[in-house]
C-alpha cells in the first residue's frame, strides 16, 4: 500500500508543478522557469521546518510566497521579451536558480549534527513528516488536499473574467491591449500565481524526498512542467492533471519493468505525441466530442 501512497504523493506535487506552468501558458508564455520556482519553494520550506522549526503549513505558505515574489520580480524584465526569447530567458533563469543552490551553504548545528543546505551535497534530513508521526496515508491526504484546493481555485479562476482575460492575452496581445487590458499586469500576475503554485509543489517535494539537491531541479524538471499542460491541452485544469497521472503513473511507474529503456521511451513518446496530436492529447475537437458524449454543452458543438 505504501507504494501507492508514495505514487499518489509524487503525482500530487507534479500536478502542482504542471498547474503552475498551466497558468502561465494560458497567457501564451512558455516558461521554463517553473523548476526554478519549485526549487525555491523546496529550499525555503525545508529551511523553515528544519532550521527554524516551523510547522509545515506556514512553511509551505512562506515557500509559496517566496517563489511568487521571485516570479513577480523575474516577470517584469522577462515579459519584455516574448515567444522563443522568453523560453530561453526563463530557461536561463531556471539554471541560474539551480546554480545558486549548487553554491548555497547555510548550515546550523542541531544537537551533534549540522543541518541545512550544503552546496553540491544538497540539503539532507528534511524529516518533518516522520518526526511528527505522519503516515504515508496522512501525507497523501494532505498533498491531495493541497492539490484539490489549488486545482479548485484555478478552475474557478478559469470561469471568472480573469481566466478569460488570461486566454485573451494569450491569443492576441494587440487586440487585448485595444480592449483595455494591461499586458504587463496580466502577464506578471499569471507568472506570480504560477510561482506561488510551484513554490507549494516544491515545499511538498522537499518533505516527500527528505533530501534535495540542485540536480533535482534541472532542465528535465522544467520540461516536465510545461509538458503536462501541453500534453493535457489548455482547455482546463483537468487536462494537466490527467497528463500528470498518465506520465507519472503510467510512463514512469507503470513501465518500471522496462528499466533504463523507460527514459528513452519518454522522449520518444513526446516526439510522437506532438506529431500525432500537435494541440495536446485533449485538443478542442476531442473536448467537444467528449462533451457531446456526456450530453453537456451540446449547443457548443
Amino acid at each position: 500500500m505504501d507504494f501507492y501512497y508514495s505514487l499518489a504523493q509524487i503525482i500530487g506535487f507534479h500536478a502542482l508543478l504542471g498547474l503552475s506552468a498551466y497558468v502561465v501558458l494560458l497567457t501564451g508564455q512558455v516558461s521554463l522557469a517553473q523548476a526554478g520556482f519549485f526549487a525555491i519553494g523546496a529550499y525555503v520550506a525545508a529551511m523553515f521546518t528544519v532550521l527554524a522549526g516551523w510547522h509545515l503549513v506556514p512553511a509551505m505558505l512562506a515557500a509559496g510566497l517566496a517563489a511568487a515574489a521571485m516570479a513577480c520580480i523575474v516577470g517584469f524584465p522577462a515579459l519584455r521579451v516574448r515567444g522563443l526569447m522568453l523560453v530561453i530567458a526563463t530557461l536561463a533563469f531556471g539554471e541560474a536558480v539551480r546554480l545558486f543552490f549548487f553554491n548555497f551553504d547555510y548550515q546550523v548545528a542541531k544537537g551533534e549534527v549540522k543541518v541545512g543546505p550544503l552546496g553540491g551535497e544538497g540539503f539532507r534530513q528534511i524529516r518533518w513528516f516522520p518526526e511528527h508521526g505522519w503516515t504515508g496515508l496522512d501525507v497523501m491526504l494532505f498533498v491531495w488536499t493541497v492539490v484539490a484546493l489549488v486545482a479548485g481555485a484555478l478552475w474557478w479562476l478559469d470561469r471568472s473574467r480573469f481566466g478569460a482575460v488570461l486566454r485573451a492575452v494569450g491569443e492576441d496581445e494587440l487586440a487585448a491591449q485595444s480592449v483595455g487590458l494591461n499586458l504587463t499586469a496580466v502577464k506578471v500576475t499569471a507568472m506570480t500565481i504560477g510561482g506561488f503554485i510551484a513554490g507549494l509543489g516544491g515545499a511538498i517535494y522537499a518533505h516527500y524526498t527528505t533530501h534535495i539537491e540542485h540536480s533535482n531541479f534541472g532542465v528535465l524538471l522544467a520540461t516536465f512542467a510545461i509538458a503536462y499542460p501541453i500534453l493535457g491541452g489548455l482547455r482546463n485544469v483537468l487536462g494537466t492533471i490527467v497528463a500528470v497521472i498518465f506520465v507519472q503513473g503510467f510512463l514512469v511507474e507503470g513501465l518500471r519493468f522496462l528499466g533504463d529503456w523507460r527514459n528513452l521511451l519518454f522522449g520518444a513518446l513526446i516526439v510522437l505525441a506532438m506529431n500525432l496530436r500537435p494541440n495536446g492529447l485533449i485538443d478542442a475537437a476531442t473536448a467537444r466530442r467528449l462533451a457531446r458524449l456526456f450530453g453537456r454543452e451540446a449547443r457548443r458543438a
Binding site: 522563443l84 532542465v219 520540461t223 501541453i230 527514459n263 522522449g267 516526439v271 505525441a273 506532438m274
Partner: peptide
Amino acid sequence: IPLASPLATLMSTVGMLLLVDEIVV
C-alpha cells in the same frame, strides 16, 4: 508538425533532447 503549432515543435524538440541524451547515456 503544422507550422501554426509553435508549442508542438518546441515540445517535440525538447522531447528529442531528452531522447538523444538518453541514447547517449
